[in-house]
Amino acid sequence: MTTTPLTPAQLQPRLGQFTVIDVRSPGEYASGHIPGAHNIPLDQLQRALPALRAAADRGELALVCASGARSATACDQLAAAGIPAATLIGGTTAWAQDGNPLERPATGRATWAMDRQVRMAAGSLVIAGMLADLALPGARWFSAAVGAGLVYSAVTNTCAMGNLLGKLPYNRPRTAPADLDNTLAALHQ
């Protein structure tokens, strides 16, 4: 089973024909998402497979994230489970840049995209390791370990740091727009 790539220009006129699944963290989702999108964070995708299969039986699925990387990973996981899905190339960033609206709950607040958070955290850890090496020789190996983790992340197309950052309080909405159980129940209908 293959993943179908979609551009914002291809998705926009067919938006009502797709069940849109946003695989970003709840905090990212709350800061702005494609109208009508359901939030199923990437780390909860396996739990959501039965509901996603039911939704795919009724119509096409379109998966989105901030840039398209996580939604492509999610599409690969769904393809492995025999569930066809499309991924939005460029994610919500490309969607908004094309002039399409983003839905934001009244309680939504701006949260950095996960890739930006990872770059900030990794860069900060590398600088901290290099500065610590001035007082504690050998601490630079901490920076090397962070670099090795980033290389592993790129090679495997996974991100442990992103998964950890997604669990921090600022990546969770103050009031959930809809909890995962309600989302899964809605997809089963």
Rank of each mutant, 00 (worst) to 15 (best):
A128I: 09
A86S: 10
L42G: 06
A30Y: 11
A51G: 08
T111H: 06
A9R: 00
D43T: 12
T183L: 12
A62C: 01
R70Y: 09
G68E: 01
A55D: 04
Q77A: 12
A113T: 03
A66H: 14
F142R: 10
Q12C: 00
T92P: 00
G129S: 09
A128F: 14
M120D: 01
V151M: 07
A62M: 00
D98C: 00
A106L: 12
C65I: 09
S71F: 04
L15G: 01
R116Q: 06
R53Y: 12
T175H: 15
E103L: 04
L125R: 06
A86Q: 04
V126R: 06
G59D: 03
L61C: 03
T92Y: 00
T156G: 00
S153E: 10
L131G: 08
A176M: 14
A122M: 08
L150G: 13
H33Q: 10
A145M: 12
A30C: 07
T183E: 08
L187Q: 05
S124T: 12
V64D: 02
L164V: 15
D133M: 01
N157A: 11
L131D: 11
V20F: 01
R53C: 11
A81P: 04
D181P: 06
A55Y: 02
F18Q: 08
A80P: 03
E103D: 02
A96P: 01
P41E: 07
L125F: 14
A30D: 09
A135G: 14
V118A: 11
L165E: 14
A80L: 07
P35L: 06
A121W: 05
